[in-house]
Nucleic acid binder design. Sequence first.
DNA 1: TTAAGTGCAAATCATTTGCATGGAT
DNA 2: ATCCATGCAAATGATTTGCACTTAA
Lengths: 151, 151
Amino acid sequence: MTRHVELVQALRRSGHRLTPQRESVLTVMAENAQHLTAEEILARVRARYPYLNKSAVYRALALLTELGLVNQTDLGRGRVEYELHRHPHHHHLICRRCQQMTQIDHALLATLGEKLARDFGFQADLDHFAIFGTCKKCQTRASKHSKRHSH
Amino acid sequence: MTRHVELVQALRRSGHRLTPQRESVLTVMAENAQHLTAEEILARVRARYPYLNKSAVYRALALLTELGLVNQTDLGRGRVEYELHRHPHHHHLICRRCQQMTQIDHALLATLGEKLARDFGFQADLDHFAIFGTCKKCQTRASKHSKRHSH
DNA sequence: TTAAGTGCAAATCATTTGCATGGAT
DNA sequence: ATCCATGCAAATGATTTGCACTTAA
């Protein structure tokens, strides 16, 4: 059973209608492993299926997120990025200086998740985390030229 | 030396001008331990000092953040919240369901920060983290009534 | 004096919403 | 036949920006 069929079934099982718009969103997301913005999803769907509206994209994404089929992440670019829920989870280190993004795997956050569950009974959504900071390269660069401007 | 004076000095040391607008923003932030939105800061300043504009607040906050005096956090409310940089750091567990916020201390994230530094040379900004998920109460609630609506 | 900073109003821009129409079940 | 979902255009709402004026240093 393909990923696409699984997703369609999950949608139906949840009691929601399978519309061509929703299906086209799923299709495009299944074809693209990387994060997509709502605008990108709209554009890619329209390349093949022109009958899709911006609102429908946002409404579909909200539903799919609610059903746990899609993850939303704010990668610091002023708009949310969407991706099909992946197993195993993955996360990102994002350099505030050069914007470089490094993917890291879930093991690094698993311990934290367990601690929060144990100590607080809090079930953290550690599906798709964005951690901001300074990458190795930029740290070196920063120590050479002082970052601060002094007029 | 008060916190306020320290902040003013840090601003001056960085080569920026101390304007009454910037100072009033700092004053209000020093008086409020909790996070404030730009709009809240504006309102509180204006209560005593009416000569402050929205743009000046945003520009001041951008500068103070750049200088490391202020932390910005997106607590999932559709607007950024600002707070003076604190020692030691603290973080938040935010329940997606009931919006309840629990403050947790930095120790819980320290290990993660060290791991990222060791493994990737990445210096994570773990100053003020927001971790979303489901709180203990809401987990219990969720298992009683199914979360999914089935029309 | 003079570059940096501010005020104002308009612009941005992703996302949301009201309402009439359409279509999946 | 229902009533859930869509299209459209307008609204929202936080944040940003252009530009002329002001002021801290």
